[in-house]
Design a protein around this nucleic acid. Sequence first.
DNA 1: CACGTCAAGACGGACA
DNA 2: TGTCCGTCTTGACGTG
Length: 214
Amino acid sequence: MAVPGLSSSSGSEGFVCIINNSNNSGNGNLSMRDLDMNQPASGGEEEDFLMGSVEEDEEEMRGAGGPRRPKKLRLSKEQSRLLEESFRLNHTLSPKQKEALAIKLKLRPRQVEVWFQNRRARTKLKHTEMECEYLKRCFGSLTEENRRLQREVEELRAMRMAPPTVLSPHTRQPLPASALTMCPRCERITAATSPRVTRPAASPFHPRRPSPAF
DNA sequence: CACGTCAAGACGGACA
DNA sequence: TGTCCGTCTTGACGTG
């Protein structure tokens, strides 16, 4: 089932300009979106190129309003691509895989772990949303079907209200109401003996079928 | 690990 | 054209 506007990727298509690490220093025309805080400023340690140094993080955490989170990491397109690729192969990572991927992406294992957690959760959410839409549509069509059947029931009830003419099998004359009985199974009015019932009209919904043998 | 939540950053539209 | 504002996306964290 396809829901318009829903893609299987993590939504990075919203990015027009992509962080381009190799070109950042070239043109001096650096916008916010060109920044990649994942890369080492000067070949620093792994911890340092993620979101600034640990000291910077701690400083960042102590804003005027108390502890704050460190500056938000934005993954580069290549990092996202590799993560997506790994996710496609496997929705969970073993510790070894996590470690290897982290090294490959120059991220901390914890970041890889969190990315996979978020990706799983959001994949599930999308799936649930699609399922919800599907069930809503089912509900709609079933409601419509239910209405139609209710109308049919009403019509059939109305038909039964009109007193049926039951002929005596012997005299071929109409029987008095006192001589009639209701079949408990099919709820048809019949003569107490072998009946011949002429209905006002055949239901358009229930064409006559051979009467069940009972 | 799933889930709920927070919050930074991106983005688009309205408006002066 | 710049700014403001609302909304969306997504990295990160706390909890069970």
